[in-house]
Design a protein around this nucleic acid. Structure first.
Lengths: 133, 133
DNA sequence: AACCATTGCGGGCATATACCCGCGATATGA
DNA sequence: TCATATCGCGGGTATATGCCCGCAATGGTT
């Protein structure tokens, strides 16, 4: 039936609500959850090109490029050329490292709160379902 | 642990993947899923103010205002003043109605595909979980 | 070596989203 | 009635996101 709830709209709304939760928690650090997540990826990779970062984050390369430039303006990451002169390599700055150190416990707090609300099986089921999309 | 998957990032990524599915299906109609969903809401309400539409869609009023203006430029909705001269009232145009008539079966197709992949219990569990966010 | 296909980016364009500010319209209380 | 508070919007600003185009670097073929 056409009047049934739209899965996409419901997912997007939940996504916005959840992002708002993380954003609120991360306010003291001055980054939102998208930026924090990107910083975490850079930390995990140590050095990574824009294209690779886009692949990891499942985001368009141009999107990654712009998002990284914002973090660069904030002084949280540094961009340089790779051996392959085409590549733009991203690395954390000391301030970027510090932002992660400061943000980690805040991020953990939100994750824990969600864990508590959903329970282990709930989390597992959710992730299994989301992977299918 | 800080290295566990971020619920928000996972949800956002799934949301993007799902939206891309709907967008692709709706291409013949020339609208994306966000616009189609908004059109559906307007149809359901017949006439509705921007603020009310924002409440229904769980979107900021200013966001709704801009999104509606895009639909207006496309000729799919019409804006007028309400009895309360402050209110901007939204209504579907004939073209807007037609877009919904054309899009409904395409949208149904995606919904059905998801139903088939998740099964009735899967869908129920997902929605129960999302509501908690 | 020269040519051509591929790859990595930047920039342009468009939509989506939120927050804030200010203006005008409406409702409320003295 | 008049002053004040509230409400509904529009516009400014900023980030997020994707698609397309063009440029420069790289790689592979002849």
């Amino acid at each position: 039936m056409t009047s049934s709830p739209c899965y996409c709209t419901a997912l997007k709304a939940a996504s916005r609500r959840l992002a708002a939760l993380y954003d609120e928690a991360l306010k003291p650090v001055g980054v939102n959850i998208a930026q924090f997540s990107l910083l975490r990826r850079v930390r995990r990779a140590e050095t990574v090109t824009l294209t690779e970062l886009g692949r990891l984050a499942e985001l368009d390369r141009s999107t990654i490029g712009r998002n990284v430039r914002v973090l660069e303006r904030m002084g949280l990451v540094a961009l340089s050329r790779g051996e392959d002169q085409r590549e733009a390599v991203v690395r954390l700055t000391p301030a970027g490292h510090q932002a992660l150190v400061d943000g980690d416990p805040l991020w953990d707090g939100v994750q824990d709160a969600i864990d508590a609300r959903l329970g282990p099986t709930g989390v597992l089921e959710l992730f299994t379902t989301l992977r299918d999309f």
